[in-house]
């Protein structure tokens, strides 16, 4: 039975194209990873396996610069992701637990606005805005811009999760004389947790990886990892850049995998 239907669905050529798709997506990343372990100082010649470029990232001449950039990147990402996750939880509660109201569609449009507008336009607008109100470019401007930009990425998994939770949980809690705060923190939030974790991790990755907006609003002197990498690449791709790229790449992969597992943990106890 399956044999026949499989045959109808099957198009020869689609498997090779899918494999090409994966090779295209992963090939360049894997090659950079391999070359980051290259012992030779020339980036073209393979000189055997070595960790010297990783050593240089942490202890070399440029190490202080990259450490400062990494510190900025991580502190900004943690604060931006936490703030945007809290805002996203509030918005999801309003959108999905407060019935129909005027402005619901507008709110959804507003929340997804940072996804629709090309990033460079958001970057220009934000830079002009900060300059108009006289907000000095630096660490704080990057943080504030990231909070706004991360909201939709945190919102989507949280809203998806909340949509799958029936409202009788919190209704039962309130019937049993829980306050609204108790109903949220003791009943609803634990149920939403997989979505919240997933949203937080995605917002974290988005903030950590952002280049275009950061590059516009950072001002002189403050760097994050992506802007430091971009500055270094402008002078040519060096092996230590490949090592630091590999580290950042592995970090994104780990966070996305965790976010994915968190989301999955949620769907399992439903079915």
């Amino acid at each position: 039975m399956t044999g026949k239907s499989q045959d109808i669905r099957h198009y020869s050529g689609f498997l090779p194209i899918s494999l090409i798709c994966l090779v295209l997506l992963y090939g360049p990343l894997i090659i950079v990873m391999i070359y980051s372990f290259n012992d030779s100082p020339s980036i073209t010649v393979w000189g055997g396996f070595s960790l010297r470029w990783y050593d240089e990232v942490f202890h070399g001449l440029e190490a202080p610069k990259f450490k400062k950039a990494a510190f900025n990147s991580f502190t900004i990402a943690i604060m931006a992701a936490s703030t945007s996750t809290v805002i996203a939880v509030c918005t999801a509660l309003a959108m999905l637990r407060c019935g129909n109201f005027r402005g619901k569609a507008v709110t959804f449009g507003l929340v997804s606005l940072p996804l629709m507008v090309p990033e460079i336009v958001t970057a220009v607008a934000t830079l002009i805005f900060f300059s108009t109100i006289g907000f000095k470019a630096g660490y704080a401007t990057i943080l504030v811009a990231h909070i706004a930009f991360c909201i939709p990425f945190a919102y989507l998994p949280i809203a998806a999760r909340l949509q799958g939770i029936e409202s009788f949980y919190e209704e039962a809690a309130v019937d049993l004389y829980a306050s609204r705060l108790q109903a949220f923190f003791q009943i609803l939030m634990p149920l939403m947790l997989p979505g919240i974790i997933s949203g937080f991790l995605l917002a974290f990755v988005i903030s950590l990886d952002d280049f275009i907006i950061t590059n516009f609003v950072k001002g002189a002197g403050v760097e994050t990892l992506p802007t430091a990498i971009f500055g270094a690449v402008k002078q040519g791709i060096k092996p230590n850049i490949m090592a630091i790229s590999t580290l950042l790449l592995m970090l994104s992969v780990i966070f996305v995998t965790l976010s994915y597992l968190a989301g999955k943990m949620g769907s399992r106890d439903k079915g």
């Binding site: 309003a94 407060c98 934000t126």
Partner: peptide, 22 residues
Amino acid sequence: GVFSGLRNWLLLPSWLVIGVLV
């Protein structure tokens, strides 16, 4: 719903942040 009375307070942060910053 349980949280209906808080709707405007819940909407405020995202309206404020995205309205002002985007």
